[in-house]
């Protein structure tokens, strides 16, 4: 099979014709994440008949509808629960979940926690735009302190949810956070996450100029995209500055988001362990029984 090199060929191979163009607002980052995922899938050369996409409710959850593959558009926050079921029914399938910050961290937080804890073989692509964009701009649990939303008109006073730290603590196999504004590192990272056995979480910081940027006075699309450049720092640089930097440099980093790969482990996934368990019990069952007669 010939390697695809242009976006036009990529579109023809992976996208559903009738669904395009997307419903996303002008300047939204969701389409970019979709494109990165498609490039990663193309580089891996996976069979799309063996790949299933699952999603919950929200802007990000419309993404599987645009891809010409099997997809599941489920109830709010339950994408990971449904995906666990798909994986249990047929462990040969590759599961990719598109979910938003409200869907994954807010409504479906408990499903996320337990899927990560059990290390179920799936790739969760969480698109974080700090707000419930589709339902009208309510405050999401990941929104930074002081951000304005319809349910927080005087500024957010709740501490934001760092979902990558949570996933690291739960022992997920692969945890990374990236910004949509730079293409090459995320594509490589998605590729690694997809290949990884066990739970992998990829968090994307995506701009939402309509619901978040407009209310928080982040300016037009250009300025909003630049905001992500100025407010993120690579985890390696962060560690170096925290170790050797001056007080001023450390103070500057306080409000910045760390991006990069946070965790990369090689633990066995849940269904591998489950298969081993079944084999062990079958062998035990077939052994000639000894004991009292």
């Amino acid at each position: 099979m010939e390697q695809i090199t242009t976006a036009d060929e990529l579109n023809k191979k992976y996208l559903r014709d009738g669904m395009w163009p997307t419903i996303f607002c002008n300047g939204c980052g969701h389409g970019v994440v979709l494109e990165y995922t498609l490039w990663a899938l193309e580089e891996l050369g996976w069979d799309m008949d063996k790949t299933v996409f699952a999603s919950g409710i929200g802007c990000s959850s419309r993404l599987p509808g645009y891809i010409n593959a099997d997809g599941l558009h489920t109830t709010h926050g339950r994408a990971i629960a449904f995906a666990t079921g798909i994986k249990a029914a047929d462990p040969d399938l590759n599961i990719i979940i598109f979910t938003g910050d409200g869907d994954c961290a807010g409504i479906g937080g408990n499903h996320f926690i337990h899927a990560a804890r059990r290390n179920i073989d799936m790739t969760v692509i969480m698109i974080n735009n700090f707000i419930y964009g589709m339902t009208g701009g309510q405050l999401a649990p990941t929104a930074p302190l002081g951000s304005i939303a319809t349910t927080a008109p005087y500024g957010n006073i709740e501490n934001p949810f760092d979902i990558c730290n949570l996933a690291c603590a739960l022992g997920a196999n692969y945890v990374a956070r990236w910004c949509v504004t730079h293409p090459y590192q995320p594509i490589k990272s998605i590729k690694e996450g997809l290949q990884k056995k066990g739970f992998s979480l990829l968090e994307f910081l995506a701009p939402c100029p309509t619901a978040y940027g407009r209310r928080n006075k982040l300016g037009d699309i250009k300025k909003h995209w630049e905001w992500y450049d100025n407010n993120t720092i690579l985890i390696e640089d962060y560690k170096k500055i925290m170790q050797y930097g001056t007080e001023e440099e450390k103070k500057e980093l306080k409000h910045k988001f760390q991006i990069g790969v946070f965790q990369d482990l090689q633990k066995p996934g849940f269904f591998e362990l489950y298969g081993n368990l079944v084999n062990r019990l079958q062998i035990k069952e077939n052994e000639p029984k000894e004991g009292k007669k």
């Binding site: 976006a7 036009d8 163009p21 980052g29 389409g31 970019v32 979709l34 494109e35 504004t181 293409p183």
Partner: peptide
């Protein structure tokens, strides 16, 4: 190919 990779609507192709 930066524009091609960054386009949110996959509308650009660089040849």
């Amino acid at each position: 190919r930066l524009c091609e990779l960054l386009c949110p609507d996959l509308a650009l192709t660089v040849i």
